[in-house]
Design a protein around this nucleic acid. Structure first.
Length: 422
DNA sequence: TCTGGGGTCCTAGGACCC
DNA sequence: TCTGGGGTCCTAGGACCC
């Protein structure tokens, strides 16, 4: 088997730079919702020590001192740029798995007569020219190794690699030397906890994990660890997933722009999250058997009284009806709500999903379910934008809504915000 | 003042079945 | 001292990913 992993460099920042060249060469970060944490950083920002996920309010001094520019996240822009990038990359292989907003795997089986490195350079060039996003490419015989090769390409660990790394071109000893220099935590699937436990056992590098006994580590950790070791040794255990599998749960939650303690605002928020989740549910043609509502205060504010609670509501029959789901959610919210707390976040999770075609309607389905209405709502919102048609329970002004003070325009998805050349 | 959102997989343990 | 064997389903919690 042979895989390529293509990954956009500092993806959100790169999207912003496409439409605002003044960001080029400067330290830039893109913040999470509510302008909370740094989730994408330009190389210049990384060099200044801005860590992934660092709370922005703690970095204000650093930002002032070095002129770091911060932007609110603009998912309309990133989502659209992602689709464009993926469609260009999809032309370089018959098999493509879109793994996240900024990366995809390409199946490279049958490309053995190609110069893979030249092929990868062609991808980089094409994406850069047509979309404006810089990407790196990793090539290897398993997905785990392709991810690792991508890391090597991005960090420039092999001189003159120029954004592409093909493990197939390394001799056995070159591989060993390289793997001995990479910490075990860089491996796909090895997070902070496993890094700590592995290092404790004297397994601190990629090479030492590759040579570890898979049976022993399976007993001490889990099958996942055994698979990782096999993949590091070139035995492919994880195949391409070309059709995105339907979700098994759908979650919609947000932090509030400021703390909320009244039931009316919480109800509006919960109703809004139900609408988002239910629309996703209908798009994948599923029904939900259960719905969970949760609310919580800020865990970072231990100086304030804490409350976090969830309630799961089994639905009488599986449903995808926003109005019915909203009623269930608000019923649940009233059960867990306590007026004396300052809530920071609420959310709704749809669970026990099953395909709409096998859902068993009960005798009163036709009178109670709003199938036709939902279709109209989805169609109108698809044409005119999310939230054009909504339930009154969602509220109008949404004063509890997200803080986004530094948002760039939706350059590519909204006629009124399209860039103008003067 | 201010700390993201949305997922998956795996394991353990309890309830329950015959 | 010793109390069957084999299975499913569900939930909670932990770890990981981007």
């Amino acid at each position: 088997m042979s895989f390529a992993l293509v990954d956009g460099n500092n993806f959100y920042v790169s999207c912003e730079r496409v439409f605002n060249p003044r960001l080029e060469g400067r330290p830039v970060v893109v913040l999470s919702n509510n302008d909370g944490c740094a989730v994408s950083r330009s190389n210049e920002a990384k060099a200044l020590g801005v860590k992934m996920g660092a709370p922005w309010f703690q970095m204000k001094d650093l930002a002032r001192k070095h002129g770091i520019l911060a932007l609110s996240s603009n998912y309309a822009l990133y989502g659209d740029m992602s689709q464009r990038m993926m469609s260009v990359l999809g032309q370089f292989s018959p098999e493509q798995e879109i793994y996240s907003i900024d990366e995809c795997f390409l199946g490279m089986d049958g490309f053995s007569h190609f110069d893979l490195v030249a092929h990868a350079q062609a991808m980089r060039h094409q994406v850069r020219q047509w979309i404006g996003i810089p990407v790196c490419v990793g090539l290897a015989e398993t997905k785990t190794l392709a991810k690792l090769a991508n890391h090597v390409a991005k960090k420039g660990l092999i001189p003159e690699s120029d954004g592409v790394c093909d493990f197939g071109r390394l001799s056995a000893t070159e591989r060993t030397t390289l793997f001995e220099s990479i910490p075990v935590g860089e491996i796909w699937g090895v997070g902070p906890q496993l890094t700590k436990q592995l290092t404790h056992r004297g397994i601190g590098t990629v090479e030492s994990l590759r040579r570890a006994d898979p049976k022993v580590l399976r007993r001490e950790f889990s099958v996942t660890m055994e698979r990782i070791i096999a993949e590091l040794n070139g035995e492919a255990c994880v195949d391409m997933e070309e059709v995105t599998p339907v979700r098994q749960q759908i979650l919609s939650s947000r932090s509030f722009g400021s703390y909320v303690s009244d039931l009316a605002s919480l109800s509006e928020a919960v109703a809004s999250y139900v609408a988002i989740a239910a629309a996703k549910l209908r798009r994948q043609e599923s029904l939900a058997g259960r719905l969970q509502v949760f609310i919580r205060t800020s865990p970072f504010r231990q100086d304030l009284p804490q409350h976090a609670q969830a309630v799961t509501i089994p639905l009488p029959t599986p449903s995808d009806d926003t109005l019915l789901l909203t009623r269930a959610a608000l019923w649940g919210l009233r059960r867990i709500y306590r007026p004396e707390f300052e809530y920071q976040k609420a959310g709704v999770m749809l669970m026990h999903l099953l395909p709409a075609t096998v859902g068993q309607p009960d005798l009163f389905h036709a009178v109670r379910n709003n199938d036709a209405l939902m279709q109209v709502v989805d169609r109108i919102n698809a044409t005119w934008g999310r939230g054009t048609l909504k339930s009154a329970a969602e509220g109008i002004g949404k004063p509890w809504g997200m803080k986004r003070e530094r948002m760039s325009p939706r350059w590519t998805t909204n006629w009124t915000e399209i860039p103008v050349a003067k």
